[in-house]
Structures are given as C-alpha cells and as structure tokens.
Design a protein around this nucleic acid. Sequence first.
RNA 1: CAGGCAGGCCGGACGGCCGCUGCCGGGCGAGCGUUAGCGAGCCUGGGAGAGGAAAGUCCGAACUCCGCAGGGCAGUGUGCCGGAUAACGUCCGGGAUCGCGGCGUCAAGGCCGCAAGACGGCUAGUGCCACAGAGAAGAUACCGCCCGCGCUGUUCCGGUGAGCGUUCGUGAAAACGAAUGCCGACCGGAACAACGUGGGUAAGGGUGAAAAGGUGCGGUAAGAGCGCACCGCCCCGGCGGUAACGUCGGGGGCAGGGUAAACCCCACACGGAGCAAGACCAAAUAGGGAGGAAAUUCGCAGCCCGACCCGAUCGGCUGCGGGUGCGUGCCGGCCCGGCGCGCCAACGCGGGUUACGUGACUGAGCGCAAGCCCAGGCGCGGCGGAAACCUCCGGGUAGGUUGCUGGAGCGAUGCAGCAAUGUAUCGCCUAGAGGAAUGGCCGUCCUCGACAGAAUUCGGCUUACAGGCUGCUUGCAAC
RNA 2: GGCGCCAUGGUGUAAUUGGUUAACACGCCGCCCUCUCAAGGCGGAGAGUUCGGGUUCGAUCCCCGAUGGCGCUA
Length: 185
Amino acid sequence: MSNGSQAIWTAVPSPAWLQVQAPRAGEGYPRLDCRMGLPLHENPLRDNDIMPEGSPDVRSARLRKHADYQRVYKESRKHFSPSMSYFFRLRTELDNVPEGPRVGLTAGRVLGKAVDRNRIKRRMREAVRINLSRLPQTVDVVLHPRKSVIDLEFAKLQSEVARIFSTVTSHTDKKVNKNNEGEQP
RNA sequence: CAGGCAGGCCGGACGGCCGCUGCCGGGCGAGCGUUAGCGAGCCUGGGAGAGGAAAGUCCGAACUCCGCAGGGCAGUGUGCCGGAUAACGUCCGGGAUCGCGGCGUCAAGGCCGCAAGACGGCUAGUGCCACAGAGAAGAUACCGCCCGCGCUGUUCCGGUGAGCGUUCGUGAAAACGAAUGCCGACCGGAACAACGUGGGUAAGGGUGAAAAGGUGCGGUAAGAGCGCACCGCCCCGGCGGUAACGUCGGGGGCAGGGUAAACCCCACACGGAGCAAGACCAAAUAGGGAGGAAAUUCGCAGCCCGACCCGAUCGGCUGCGGGUGCGUGCCGGCCCGGCGCGCCAACGCGGGUUACGUGACUGAGCGCAAGCCCAGGCGCGGCGGAAACCUCCGGGUAGGUUGCUGGAGCGAUGCAGCAAUGUAUCGCCUAGAGGAAUGGCCGUCCUCGACAGAAUUCGGCUUACAGGCUGCUUGCAAC
RNA sequence: GGCGCCAUGGUGUAAUUGGUUAACACGCCGCCCUCUCAAGGCGGAGAGUUCGGGUUCGAUCCCCGAUGGCGCUA
C-alpha cells in the first residue's frame, strides 16, 4: 500500500494539486463549524437560498459503476450513523476522474418493495444534493440507508447527512496531512 | 334514504421556490473544413415526464439470433358450436347441462328469468374404487320372500285292531252280540311350525360416496322390463338450423356405475432460445494466427507399420472409381435417414527397427584402371518446440454506442354487425432511464388520499386496492 | 429483466397406483434412577402438511391461483 502510494506521488512531478487542496480544506473547516452551530432544521428554507451558488453537477457527482463501488468497499471500513451506514475513500490520480466528490447510494431488497426503495433513494439524493459542497474534492462516499429513512423527518435526515459529510472531511484531511508529512523528508 | 347487481371512468387538487431525465429552440463557441457547413462544451428559453394494475410472469404475438432435405416417435398445450382477432388458454353470440328464483301441476315432466364453468371420448383399451358391506363391476345371495325334499312335533281326517266305559239284547251269573263314546298304538293323507337341505328371486332390510334404469298397474309360488303406460336411455329416419343441437315419427326392453385435474384414445396446434436476444466500436492484461530478422537453447532427423473389399492380374507399389465398415461432428429431445470431416501424401502422434545426405580430407579393403565400399573427425544442409524482439491480422473482456420507442397507437364522429369487432374521415403525439429520472420545503382547500413505481414492445388473464362518479333493479318515505 | 426449483411438529427429514388417527430422530415436558448432574428407562404433549379455491366418495399427493424462500443466466 505505502509502496504504491509513494510511487504515485513520485510519478506526479508537480505538487500543484496538493496546493489547491490544502487551502480548500483549511477554509472548509470554520465554515462547516459555523453551520453546524446553526439550528438547521428550524429554518430549512435558508438552504434553498444558498444552494444555487454552490450546487455542482449532481450527475457527475454520483458513483455509477460497479467497479467504483467495489473499490470503495475494498479500501475502507463501514462507519455507522443512526439511520444509515457509510463507506468513503480518497481518490488517487490513477482513477482518472474529473474533480468533485462522488456519492453512491444502495437500496437492496431488504429495505422493502420497489416503491419504498425508490422513495428512500429520492430522499437520500435530495439530502446529499443539499450537503454536497461540504465534501472535499477527491472523495468517494457510499451510503447505505436503513429502512427508517422512509419515515424520518427530512430536516433530521438532512442534518445527519451533513454530520456524516463533515466527519468524512475531517478524516480525509488528516490523511492528506499525513501523506504530506510523509513526503517531506 | 337503504340494499343488490353491472360495466365504464377517476385514482387528492391548486400555487410558489429549488432540484432530476429526455426532447425542441436561441446565443456564445474550442476544434474540423478551401467555402457551404459540422460542431464538444457553456449560458439561456419552452414544453413533456409512471399504472389500472406499471405487479405476478400464467398464456398469446411482434422483434432478434441459432437451426432447418425428408419421414417417424416422444414431449407440451388446447378441447360443445359458430364468429372476432396478428395470435391466444382471450373476447362475443348461440347450444346442452347443473344451481337458484318464479309460474304451473296432486306430483313429475314443462315454461320463464338470473347466474356458473378445464362442457371431446369410460359405448376403443388398461388401471383404480380404501373402510363398511352378502356383494364394488363378464354382479352377489347375509337377513328376508317363495317352491321342492328330508326329519321332528302339533292338529285334523280316514282306516285297522286292542283296551276301557255306557246303553240295549240274551242270560241266574260268567260271558257273548249290537250300537255308541273315550283313550292310546299302527298305517295313509292334509295343514301348520321348527330345523336341515336343494333350488328360485332381485320387490324389501341393512352397508356404502356409489348396489346394475325410475314410478304405477298388471302379472307371479315369490318375484323380475316378464308385460303394459308415462318418464329416462340407445338406435334409425324425416324436418328445422352454417353447426352445436332441437323437434317429430318409428324401433329396441335397457345393453353401458364412477373416475380421463388416472394411463390413455381422438382432433387440432407447437423448431429452440430470449433485449442480460442481437448488432457495432473497443483499453489494459493474458492468449491465438500470419510474416520478418538475427541469434540462444533443447529435441528430432532414415526406413517400415498403424481400416477392409471389388474393378484386378503371379506378386508388389502408386493413382483413380465404386462399395462396405469404424470413428467423429451437425440436423438445439430421440430414432431412421441425410450431410460434412477423418481413417495419412506431409507435419504431428503411437509402435517397431537403430540410423541421414552431401563436400573435400585422412586411413583400411577390393579392382589392372576408372572407380566402388567401410571407418573417422570436420564443414554445409532440413524440421519442430520454448523464451525474448518487430510488424500485421482476427477473436474478445472492462467500458461505450445501438436495439429504444410513431405503435396490431390514442380520441371523436359516421357506417356495417345482436355483439366481440371491423372500417372510413378528421384530430392528436403521449416516459425512454441505465447504481437506473417525479424529489425537498412552504401555503391553501377537501371526503385527509388505497394498492402500488415503467426497463424491448403490444393483446389478454390472474392477483392487490381507500374513496368517488354512471346505469339498472328492489324496498321504504314524500310529491 | 429472463428462466427454473422448493415449502410437512421447535429443528432435520419420511409418507406413491390418492385410502382410516400424517411416520422417525434430535429437542421439549413429567416421572423413575442418582447425594446431585449427565447418561439411561418409562410416559406425554406438540402439525393437520405455506395460504385460498377446484377435481374426487376421499387430497401431503392431481389441477389452478396467491405468498415466502432458493438457484441459474451478464
């Protein structure tokens, strides 16, 4: 693993990508903290006002291929949250994918019939869309919702997704820093 | 107002902001192109966007690929008749049957209405019908009923003879004679009963899901289609109907229990797989084929054999033609049959036998000589495999594009038809995703919202379903 | 998406020309045995065959529909 990553780092001659990444992540932190402090669910309309400026292309921000999912499952562990579980992974240059976070959803037969599964995925998609800007640029996330999502109040669902995304961000930032330090000597 | 039935329609509504997937238009526009123009991408405007079942995958098709000389068998499905349809196991109309209701009748048959459905054939054959019961399918005989015979008993009648009594006669008495009564015995006969036995019978009882046409009258030893009437059944004929079938007449005493959602028979239909079908483009890696160039390494090298017969011979070899056989592949279940390939010429493989050619040289032998032959090492020559290199080709995975939505399409009106449906005219365009599009929030209203989410496309069936609308009918109330 | 298969006590399996009350093992309950437990012995309960219809005199079995589960297919 470490061998592979080192090979990649050395293969990339310019650290320009890193320079772009680092300040972005640093900037994201206080902003996120601010938002978390706000009572989001009491005023959901505000998000709608905010969204247009930051909403990226949602279609490209989705995990689409079986291989992508398998890569995420292979390189990460399951994390838990009250109404869903999630996986995430930092992308590397090998993936050859345009910038932007990508999120995948699953809804197996355990969650119910087709109508219920569709509804779960729609609500999840909306919650992800609102909170997409909280994620760093080069991360893949897979969410496994539970059956309770179907009845959960949307404000709660949305804040839970927000919480998950910010923990993902903090984890990945640590990783990036480690890699940076490791490369310095 | 309440209940029932039928079929058609709807399946929360409206508005605001943000968002998703196609489509159409406008602007900017990298880039390509000599121009015309084509255009990735970005911005922007408009419009569309789940169902009656989208479900189950139970049928039928379209479409696609594979297969397809011909014949047979197997398999699967359908099953009254006629029509509709691209087709169907669907739909419409009709027939027969069963059920329910009403009318009618002493009762049954009958008539009318409603409703139902896997309604060809047990009279082609075979199988099965537990338990109970006498007997369960070419019937049976338990009880019962009837007849015959045997034995026993009772009663009656007749006869024979004995005994006893009474009366009369003779007589002193005993006794004798006559009449009559009683008793038991024997013989014969009749009736009845019990038992046994040999038959008859299929009315009745009982068993069972089912007991071999039903009811009535006659008939009989008792009974029985044994005879008759009516009903049912079968056969033949006439008439009506396209037909299923109906109806009328005649004949037959009746053979033929149920089960084919038992095997099966008959008729008809069916090639197989399915859009994850299929077509096109095609990375990395591995592998396949062809060619090339040098050079590495390993192995081989010759000869003989590795189906048969005939034309065809003294024999052998080669080629050709014909036949047979074997193996194998295909004909997408199997067989016949057919077709292709192989059965060795080369390579390879297996077995046997143990070795190549050539050039000059050296040596031994033979020869008068030319030369022949043997041995040795050297040079040259052939083939194959493996790894590595270059070029090209084909298959093909990930991935992408396509198939992919304008169609047996929907609506209105007219016409044809009882109807299903067909047809003409006019109008309309109504999802096309691909880890898979309809969501989030807010406001208003109501009856507070069921079952449920397109995945190639249609026609049906089945199943799930809150509520509402429409028509018909019954009851009650009011006008 | 398409195509196949299965369902029987708590569990694993039986039950075939369609025939009485659905069989067996483990498990469960009670009693005996033992100082106690286990083992052992004796006895008992527990299903109406996934559900709903139909054919049949009669259905776990045959037919139709529904529900749930499993497998194959790129």
